[in-house]
């Protein structure tokens, strides 16, 4: 492999997209109203599209002749490097939308920065994905605001979702030697800057939604190192079912 750090970096992004897309796909046919069912599926489709582009790039960087499907379906749980946030179960609509909002608010500044990356393929993916992500963030923000400033019940549900998901948000900005290496070459942004942008968005939207940031700052991480929550195994059992039950076939 020519660029192991970059491979790992792209893989992490691809896994984030795939796993969140998979989770959103679970809503299809079960949304709170048809219009929103369609909206969530659109976001899921965007994320799966992004995953395909990112896995293609990762496969190319790895240079082993793998396809995006090999990477998406044929790894063991500890080889998936997505953050814990995206694998968390859908819960109610508030949990799903808050999870989406925290992720979108992270992805938007990340893509904005990656548009300027000297890695042209990554910059191209970022540019295309940025348009999609801007829309996702707009949509999830609007729902956070409506839930927060809607009824008493919706406010409680939204706040409960924030309180629950907050522990998974720090991992969005997890950095290790992979990031440091690429940052040193100015190929990818420093996540501290992304975090500042993220915090600004979160604060602005939650404030408009009359919701509050949790005071508990206890944080979980592990996904980026392949150490996942118990939910991940079940998610992969479904995701990989066909490839595992019928190995080496075309579909």
């Amino acid at each position: 492999m020519q660029q192991p750090a970059l491979f790992e970096y792209v893989l992490r992004m691809a896994d984030d997209s795939l796993i969140l897309g998979q989770r959103l796909g679970e809503w299809c046919g079960h949304g709170p109203i048809l219009e929103e069912d369609i909206a969530m599926t659109n976001i899921s489709l965007d994320l799966i599209g992004q995953a395909i582009s990112l896995y293609d790039l990762a496969a190319e960087l790895e240079g082993g002749g793998k396809t995006h499907d090999d990477l998406a379906f044929l790894r063991f749980e500890n080889q998936y490097k997505n953050v814990l946030l995206v694998e968390q179960p859908n819960g109610d609509f508030a949990m799903t939308m808050l999870r989406q909002f925290f992720f979108d608010a992270f992805r938007k500044p990340l893509y904005e920065a990656l548009c300027k990356s000297p890695i042209t393929q990554l910059a191209a993916i970022a540019e295309k994905s940025l348009k999609e992500t801007r829309y996702h963030l707009k949509h999830s923000s609007e729902w956070v605001i409506r839930m927060g400033d809607g009824t008493e019940e919706s406010h409680q549900r939204a706040q409960a979702a924030i309180d629950h998901l907050w522990r998974y948000t720090a991992e969005l900005f997890y950095e290790d030697t992979i990031d440091e290496q690429l940052q040193a070459q100015q190929q990818v942004p420093v996540l501290k800057e992304i975090q500042a942008a993220w915090m600004e968005t979160v604060k602005a939207v939650l404030s408009e939604a009359t919701l509050v940031l949790p005071t508990n700052n206890w944080k979980f991480e592990g996904g980026r190192q392949g150490r996942h929550s118990e939910h991940m195994g079940y998610l992969l059992a479904e995701l990989q079912y066909m490839q595992r039950a019928y190995p080496d076939m075309q579909w």
């Binding site: 109203i33 909206a39 949509h139």
Partner: peptide
């Protein structure tokens, strides 16, 4: 046509539908 709680979401729903 479609259903939406307000103009902002009506535009977004229209985009998706």
């Amino acid at each position: 046509s479609l259903r939406a709680p307000d103009a902002t979401l009506a535009l977004e729903n229209a985009r998706d539908v």
